[in-house]
Design a binder for these strands. Structure first.
Lengths: 107, 107
DNA sequence: CGGGGATACCTTGACAGGCGAGGTATCTTG
DNA sequence: CAAGATACCTCGCCTGTCAAGGTATCCCCG
């Protein structure tokens, strides 16, 4: 278990949606992007990532489609739905809120 | 489930230790103090609180003793051990770290 | 005096999310 | 041809949260 594993628990969905709000993407790319954005400090485990995809799709927050697999391995692309977008912006606000709370409690 | 419940998941131990680092205390008081410090924005569920006590004590991060129960209901006081203190300070640093990571991922 | 609310503790069991471990298939490069 | 990158996926364990339920004491109000 990495240092930050438990602390980021609960933000998985928002982190994934943050990428999909910008553009449709697929698992492997999202994972690499997370590592890049955090300078390698954080890496989402694959199992976590894919179970999140299933959860989000089941909840109607994202949809998926197979990419053109003429070259390389096939890719399953994900796209945010309108309710997924709302969910994301709401989650971002909640993060700001939670941050204030925790900061108040860990002086 | 309150808005911020999932987001604070994983900080329970640190939040409790933060209070005990200042002074020995007991469950009910800690809970009230959390509510006060967050202006009522956050309240730890009792079951969560007490299961955290058990976990922390098992791990040797806190110890407990019964308070003088001549008046009122009996109180079980908790005190931080040296390793509990180290754990707390380490957790606080990890929180700063996690905060930076999440901020980077939720633009 | 009786009842409700505050104080104070505790346990059980269900549930959800993270993730280790394992698996598949393709492409590129030395 | 082997190794490593790309790309996907599942099973099942573990841990933490918490709804629900329980106990006992004290104080105040009508």
């Amino acid at each position: 278990m990495s240092l930050t594993a438990d602390l980021i628990r609960g933000h998985t969905d928002a982190i994934i949606l943050a990428h999909l709000v910008e553009k449709d993407s697929y698992g492997y790319e999202i994972n690499k992007a997370i590592q890049a954005k955090t300078s390698g400090d954080y890496e989402m485990k694959e199992a976590t990532l894919y179970s999140a995809f299933r959860r989000l799709e089941r909840a109607g927050l994202i949809t998926s489609y197979w990419g053109d697999a003429t070259i390389g391995a096939r890719r399953r692309y994900y796209a945010v739905t309108p309710s997924g977008q709302r969910f994301y912006y709401q989650n971002r606000e909640e993060w700001q809120h939670a941050k204030r709370i925790i900061d108040a409690l860990l002086p």
